[in-house]
Design a protein around this nucleic acid. Structure first.
Lengths: 327, 327
DNA sequence: GCCTGCTCCGATATCGATATCAAGACGGTC
DNA sequence: GACCGTCTTGATATCGATATCGGAGCAGGC
């Protein structure tokens, strides 16, 4: 008991005794058992992080940013992946809650029904990022998906493109849906006909989608690719299909990536503040944990995005070491 | 107690009672408390994974592969990052051990002194991957770093290159050191003078290194870049410095990456089996955990690498949609 | 001397599981 | 009926921490 009091400063202890305790701790190289502590106190001084996967650098960046904030608040973190499966997400989150995490920062899984309104989570603070979940109890930090898409499409329209095709991963994913909404809005506003494709899950699938889009009577002259993952597949596909960017097709993506600027041609993208997104979400979570501000409940924070104009959209044609034939 | 017996099957229970227990469990939506279980049994049915970071897709892939194997063995995982700092690594590993993880799969941090020989870890099974640690108690799964580098450099030499420069991150990192060893060996074997640079930590730094290398009287005609991270910086730098690949400089990297094959020019690399590396390491760990095979102790497994020849080394010049001037 | 108040420390109960021990119920054997 | 073995179940102690209570020791005031 006295040791506990010394280590936690939970009650005054005589200086001499304190010294003896520290001495004994050193002699025995004693370390308090966090499991016992967690059992007794029903808390673990940690938060849980669940992201769909680590492959996507966007998710990796978010997870890292959250961890940094947690470290600043002297919390440890428990990271896990859902593989976009709400079932796995539930299992992982439930395990975390049983392990008494103080809160959860989650990028919700796209496939399946979210379980965060289940009674298991009634007393857990939950903040989501990148994608929202319904519910008064939760906070979400999002980016301006729709607005970003509108800006990208407008940019293409400003350059004279009329047949712009939109390529996406899956309309089960919130961000993709929002971006496609933006695409559609922008097209409609200029009386253009939207032309959308979902399902770029593999490189193969993406190539088929592109071929389908290009085989119509009125071939598109530009593509808006609504996420990073599909963009990688699309670039492979364009390369294989001998479609030249931006000569045959202008191209804009959503979400920046390393080397997008030195790719040939450099890829124009809508950049999201991934690190900031994680930071803000984590800070929101800790605000809730530490000040118990219930007033924040249900609030959504939306962060701005930025159109980064490079070459793939047809602008800035003179790249450093680049010379595309016929141009 | 009876509930415990039913759930764990640790002793026979009357069928009727069993049914009543299950009924009660359902009615109360009871879930066993893993913290209490862990306290009593001093185990947690989980393994810890520590990697330097999630940014590097190589590390992300390894972590994912390990998780998959853990899932197959019905273990949960506890993932953490060291940021290449042995101090943080110790803190994280120690916390995991205090939380009674059954074993650790680690990519050891490069900076600082490893702590895994400390008494805190005397009863923990530890397997490292990508990088070894000294000690009879540990297993490591590595790749043929030296041999891979030798093959890459030989390939360049076979194409007539004599002044080949080697660009690395830090000689504190085991893999980098091993690859540079290979580079040096290959160069010496052909009576060529090694020319190595370390410190490509940022794009800026890498550019300076390249400029330094290129400013000598005898400019290199080829670069061997010993890791993925530096390769990204180097490509940026080459682009900024208007150095054309492979016309001005031939280029080979270590570790494949998404889109290396559609980069212009496609990058020739030594490919490592990252997923396999994680899988094998995890299987080794579980072999130790489940069969308690102490005979495996101290063993190292070395996995083969493969030279993937693309265009940046000067081979296969005709890329799909590519036309470099003067070629 | 007695009471009050304060500081400091240890005894005990508790968190929720499981290891261990013990005991009731029942059938069979002599 | 006494004894034994098997099957089943509950009682108790335990893991290592902390919440709570109580008590020892001492000073000060009447």
């Amino acid at each position: 008991m006295t040791v506990s009091r010394v280590l936690n400063g939970s009650a005054p202890v005589n200086e001499g005794t304190k010294a003896r305790v520290y001495q004994a701790i050193k002699r025995l190289s004693y370390q308090p058992n966090p499991v016992a502590r967690s059992l007794r106190q029903a808390k673990s001084n940690s938060i849980g992080i669940i992201v769909p996967n680590f492959y996507d650098p966007f998710f990796a960046t978010c997870a890292h940013a959250i961890s940094l904030v947690a470290k600043q608040h002297h919390y440890s973190v428990n990271v896990s992946t859902s593989d976009e499966d709400a079932g796995i997400e539930f299992t992982e989150a439930n395990l975390m809650v049983l392990n008494h995490v103080e809160g959860l920062a989650v990028i919700p899984a796209a496939i399946g029904k979210s379980s965060f309104d289940r009674p298991e989570f009634h007393s857990t603070h939950i903040v989501t990022l990148d994608r929202p979940i319904r519910g008064q109890r939760f906070n979400s930090v999002l980016v301006e998906n729709q607005q970003g898409a509108i800006e990208a499409v407008k940019h293409l329209i400003d350059h004279g493109h009329k047949r712009i095709c939109c390529l996406g991963l899956s309309n089960k994913v919130y961000t993709i849906r929002a971006r496609h909404e933006g695409y559609k809005k922008a097209m409609m506003r200029f009386n253009l006909i939207p032309d959308q494709y979902f399902g770029g899950v593999t490189e193969e699938a993406t190539r088929v989608l592109i071929q389908k889009a290009m085989s119509g009577r009125k071939k598109p002259t530009a593509f808006f690719v609504s996420n990073n993952f599909v963009m990688r597949h699309a670039l492979h596909a364009f390369s294989k299909l001998n479609i030249r960017i931006p000569d045959d097709i202008a191209l804009i993506g959503f979400d920046d990536w390393e080397m997008a600027d030195i790719f040939v041609p450099a890829i124009t993208v809508v950049r999201q503040p991934s690190h900031e997104l994680g930071r803000v979400a984590a800070e929101l979570l800790f605000a809730r944990l530490e000040h118990k501000e219930v007033s924040l409940s249900g609030q959504q924070i939306v962060m701005p995005v930025e159109l980064v104009i490079r070459q793939s959209c047809g602008c800035n044609r003179r790249g450093p070491a680049r010379a595309v034939p016929g141009n």
